[in-house]
């Protein structure tokens, strides 16, 4: 099934989602972020998947975060299931969801520095020293 794709802006994002809820899309199934580092401007694109079980259809909402502080309104008051997903997006990409009830890191430790899924975060930046392995200088 091909979801219908809707592009929107940060300002109209919340209104659109309220109208979706009234439109019979009961479930927010997924929220994720794509980092278009040095490819697109603004850099972060939020992709939200919605599912309507009564109509048996899907909708995808795409919104670029054009705010300088990477802030976008939270939709936890409309769809409570977005709670964990927004925390994950904050943890992995550093997107700030305004008015989120508990915007803390979810997968990484609380004192972690940086946002691991950003494209400019190197995956091998922390060297791993295995036990009893010969040390390489």
């Amino acid at each position: 099934m091909n979801p219908e794709i809707i592009n929107t802006t940060t300002e109209e994002y919340k209104e659109l989602i309220e109208s979706l809820k009234k439109d019979g899309f009961e479930m927010m199934v997924d929220l994720t972020v794509v980092d278009w580092f040095r490819k697109k401007e603004p850099r972060f694109e939020i992709v939200v998947q919605f599912l309507s079980t009564s109509k048996n259809s899907r909708k995808t909402i795409k919104v670029f975060v054009n705010d300088e502080d990477l802030t976008i309104p939270s939709i936890t008051d409309i769809y409570p299931s977005s709670n964990f997903y927004e925390r994950e997006a904050y943890d992995m990409f550093g997107i700030v969801f305004a008015d989120h009830p508990d915007l803390t890191r979810i997968l990484m430790p609380d004192d972690w520095e940086g946002h691991p899924l950003r494209k400019n975060y190197g995956s091998g930046r922390i060297p791993v020293q295995f036990k009893n392995a010969p040390k390489v200088d």
Partner: peptide, 10 residues
């Protein structure tokens, strides 16, 4: 959660 996070998406 997060005790088994291994960065599979990365």
């Amino acid at each position: 959660i997060g005790y088994l996070h291994t960065g599979m998406e990365k």
